[in-house]
Amino acid sequence: AVSDRLIGRKSVVMEAISPQNSGLVKVDGETWRATSGTVLDVGEEVSVKAIEGVKLVVEKLE
Rank of each mutant, 00 (worst) to 15 (best):
S18D: 07
L61Y: 11
S3P: 13
S11V: 15
P19K: 05
V46S: 02
I51D: 02
A50Q: 06
S36N: 00
V48R: 01
E52W: 12
V27I: 15
S18A: 06
L40A: 04
A50H: 06
R5G: 08
V46H: 00
D28Q: 06
K49R: 11
G23D: 00
V58R: 00
M14E: 06
K26N: 11
N21P: 02
T38C: 13
T35N: 06
V13L: 02
D28S: 06
K10I: 14
V25M: 03
S36V: 01
R5S: 10
K60G: 05
S47R: 15
E62R: 11
I51L: 07
V58A: 01
V12P: 01
G29E: 09
L6R: 04
S11G: 15
D4S: 14
I17S: 01
G8F: 03
E45F: 14
G37N: 15
K55A: 13
V25C: 06
E30L: 09
E59H: 07
W32E: 00
G37M: 14
R5K: 09
V25Y: 01
L61H: 08
L61K: 07
G23T: 02
V42K: 07
E15T: 11
V12L: 10
V57Q: 05
T35D: 08
Q20W: 14
G8D: 03
L61R: 07
G43F: 04
T35H: 05
A50E: 06
V57R: 09
V25F: 02
V48P: 01
L6Y: 07
A16T: 09
S11P: 05
Q20V: 09
K60E: 03
I17T: 04
V13D: 01
K55I: 15
S47F: 15
V12F: 09
L61I: 13
G29D: 09
K26T: 10
K55G: 10
R33Y: 11
V57Y: 09
E59Y: 07
E15I: 10
T38R: 08
E45P: 07
V57N: 04
R5Q: 08
Q20I: 10
G53N: 05
V46E: 01
T38V: 11
E52C: 14
V25H: 01
V39D: 10
I51W: 07
G37W: 14
E30P: 00
V54C: 15
V27P: 02
S22K: 04
E62D: 11
E45D: 06
G53P: 03
G29S: 07
G53V: 04
V57G: 01
A16G: 08
G29W: 05
R9S: 07
V25E: 01
D41I: 11
D4E: 13
E30V: 11
S3V: 11
V46G: 03
V58P: 00
S18Q: 05
I7H: 04
S22G: 09
L24Y: 11
S47L: 15
K60R: 14
S3K: 10
V42F: 05
A16V: 08
A34V: 03
V25I: 08
R9D: 03
Q20D: 11
V39C: 14
V58D: 00
E30M: 10
V13F: 01
V54G: 15
E45M: 13
G37F: 14
E62W: 12
V39R: 11
V13Y: 02
G37D: 15
L6A: 01
R9P: 03
G37Y: 14
V46T: 04
G8Q: 03
K26I: 14
G53R: 04
G37Q: 13
K49S: 08
V58G: 01
I17W: 02
L56D: 02
V13W: 02
S3D: 09
L56E: 00
E52S: 10
E52A: 09
G23P: 00
R5P: 06
K26S: 13
R9V: 06
V2Y: 12
S47W: 15
T35L: 08
G53L: 03
S22H: 09
L61G: 07
R33C: 13
T31L: 15
G23M: 02
V57M: 06
A34K: 02
Q20H: 12
D28M: 09
R33V: 15
V42D: 01
V12C: 11
V58H: 00
V27S: 03
T31F: 14
V13I: 04
K26L: 15
K26Q: 12
V46C: 15
V39M: 10
G23Q: 01
K10D: 06
S47H: 12
K49M: 13
R5V: 07
S36A: 11
Q20L: 11
K55L: 15
N21I: 13
E44H: 04
V27N: 03
V27M: 08
V39S: 12
L56R: 01
E59I: 09
K10R: 13
S3N: 11
V13C: 04
V54A: 14
V2N: 13
S36F: 04
K49H: 07
E45W: 15
L56C: 02
E45Q: 10
G29K: 06
L6E: 00
V46Y: 01
T31Y: 14
V12I: 13
K55V: 15
V13R: 00
E59D: 08
L6K: 03
V25R: 02
V13G: 01
V54F: 14
I17H: 02
S3H: 13
D28F: 07
S11E: 02
E44M: 11
V42W: 04
S18G: 09
